[in-house]
Amino acid sequence: MRKWLLFIVAALMVILSACGNDDTKTKETSDGKDDTKKSGTISYKSENGTVKVPADPKRVVVLSLFVGDLMEMDVNVVGMDSWSKDNPDFAKKYPDAEVVASTDYEKIIELDPDLIIGSNDVEDVKKLQEIAPTVIFTYGALNYIDQRIEVGKVINKEKEMNAWVKDFQARSKVVGDKIKAKIGEDATITVAGNSDKQIYLFGDSWGRGTEILYQEMGLNMPKAVKDVAIEPGYFGISEEVLGDYVGDYLVLNLVKKGQDTSFMDSTWYNNIPAVKDKKVFYAEGSAFYFADAHSFDKQLDFFEKSFLGK
């Protein structure tokens, strides 16, 4: 009997020891289900393999595209790419964030990140992984909604990001229905932007609010734009032929910093029907071209004010 008692005590000690070394904590949620997570990390299955990322990231380096998602979810960013830093909203939210490129390894080390997020154009993922857990996304591999959800998973805020998506889509439908009622079901909208004496036309998934106008709201793109821009996502044209691609309305992303905008004073530009009819809405290019949760909110507000006068 004593031997059995000693055996049971020893077995209990082994079990308790194993539990003490396991960093998994289980709690019961309000709906009675178990919510099991690592106390310090969670596992995220990324395209570059399963990555253990912090359950509550505090110092994130974002190498492209996703600063606005973290901003919307109130996650701290300590480093970002130069394009993101040029966005006045991001710069205001994260004034102390350093500008870093994906190859600035020493600078990134100095920032002491606990998470790195970037796109697949980084030069050496393995070097970044040596610094901190690194998650890489391929641009365009996911649609704009699924991409938000995946970023939410990486920062352990999937529930919050799902709530944002639901709210965003509901608001987009309301605004889109009102715009259709005002401008007509058949009205067409062109989204374009300037750069180096050239104009770029944008399809339905290349930022600049295109995802909202064409996908969420179901508004119409001119056939001329659809023929050249849908497949590649964007298409460059010379300034003087812009009128051939402008529909009933034009959303023009103006990049003013270091760019020549004198075309706006030309006769050919001011003779475009949408321009003559004052159906052009000018957006600030440095902030408007992003496709993230914060930027989508700003773009939706812009379209509501521009089309509906609110």
Rank of each mutant, 00 (worst) to 15 (best):
E185H: 12
I189P: 01
K226E: 14
G218Y: 02
G233W: 00
F202I: 08
I230A: 14
I189S: 10
D204T: 08
D196T: 14
G247W: 01
L242T: 04
N253Y: 07
Y249Q: 05
E231F: 08
F202L: 13
V251L: 14
P232F: 05
Q215R: 14
E239L: 07
E211A: 07
D227V: 05
I183A: 14
Y214W: 01
E240D: 12
S238C: 02
Y245V: 02
G243L: 09
G233C: 01
G184R: 13
Y245H: 09
A181D: 15
K180S: 11
G193P: 02
K178S: 14
L201H: 09
A229M: 03
I199D: 06
I212L: 14
K197H: 13
I230G: 06
G209K: 03
V228A: 02
G236I: 11
N253T: 13
L213F: 04
I237S: 00
W206G: 09
K223E: 12
P222F: 09
Y245D: 02
V228K: 09
V225C: 05
M217I: 02
L213Q: 01
L219Y: 00
G203L: 04
G233P: 00
I199Y: 10
L219F: 01
G218C: 04
L201I: 10
V191H: 08
S238D: 11
Y200M: 14
D244I: 02
T188W: 07
D204R: 13
L201E: 09
T210N: 03
D186Q: 15
V191R: 10
V255T: 10
S205K: 15
L254Q: 12
K197Q: 13
E185D: 15
E185S: 15
M217T: 03
K178I: 09
L254R: 14
A181I: 08
I230E: 13
I179L: 08
L219A: 01
D196K: 15
A187L: 05
M221R: 06
F202P: 01
Q198P: 01
A192N: 10
A192S: 12
I189G: 08
K197T: 09
K180E: 07
L219Q: 00
Q198C: 08
E211W: 07
K226M: 05
I183F: 09
A187K: 13
L242Y: 04
D244H: 11
E240W: 10
D204A: 15
G207C: 06
G207K: 09
N194Y: 06
T190H: 10
D248M: 08
A187M: 03
Y245G: 03
D204M: 06
F235Q: 12
S205G: 13
L252H: 09
E185T: 13
M221K: 07
P232N: 12
Y234V: 07
Q215L: 09
K182Y: 06
